[in-house]
Amino acid sequence: MVDIPEHLLLRSAEARAKALGISVEQALAEMKGESTPTVVAEEPEVIEIDTPAPAKAEVPAPVETPVTEEEPAKAEVPAPVETPVTEEEPAKAEVPAPVETPVTEEEPAKAEVPAPVETPVTEEEPAKAEVPAPVKAKAPAPAKDDSPEEVDFAPEVKVTQRLLTVVKAKPIQKASAEPVDKVNTWPHLMLPEFISLMAMMAFLIILSAILQAPLLEEANPNITPNPAKAPWYFLGLQEALSYWDPQIAGVMIPLVIGLIGFAAIPYIDRNPENNPSKRKYAIMMFTFFLAGAGTLTIIGVLFRGPGWNWTYPWIDGIWFDDLLDWIYFE
């Protein structure tokens, strides 16, 4: 068995001793298994405390208020004084709580106690009779000698909790997403990632060891090569420039289609499906774009020679120095 630390054992023994009404030493011995556990058949003391409790609770108000009018009046003066006018009876009947306070020194308690002699403002009396609840709450306050609070509560051994309300079992956060099948990142994601990373590194090193990056003669602004070509990823654009007005090909395509059009794709395509068979139009458009851009780029790289005239790479050679330099690298 697990060793329970001494202080924890002692604390639970104290709790048990208190609950069963036995001594702490006995409880401790029971918990350690040195003596047979005390079995509690019934709780006699609990019952007997219960009986006097209601008896006292019923009579507190009349008991403390047999005195003159002044005493309860003092108790009430600090309480709400906001409704000093007494004429409106129905209003008072509706709002029971402040009713008894306003004017009268004579006490709500008098509604129960038989001495409502003075009755300065007579209209309120029925209202008071209706609302005895706040009366009781106030009445115990001036009584210092008596202690009704203690008996108001049941013994702690008996009652530890009470039902306030029943709340329907409904989660605070609604889980709208279906539970998904997940795996641990380590090793199921990081291992493939690491392997592909190493593969890419190996590929790049081998590529760099075999293919020499081009380095032509030093830059000379006075000697223009023919043709002068942009980097390969702009060659599709350069090819398009040879067909259309530069305002269209040089600006509309890269800026409007390229940047703005691409960025706007998710806001144009509102189809929530991501299954390819349910978004054929979007896929078709994008594939058209890819094919067009790829074709233009390949034409620009391989099929354009001096004067941007059409050439065949297998007849006239490649007119792209970036490619040329390492293809013929020996």
């Binding site: 081009p214 830059a219 000379n220 090569p225 070509k229 120095d321 330099d325």
Partner: peptide
Amino acid sequence: DQLAIWAVTVG
């Protein structure tokens, strides 16, 4: 080099 300067000029 010549490749660099003319590609950038075109761009």
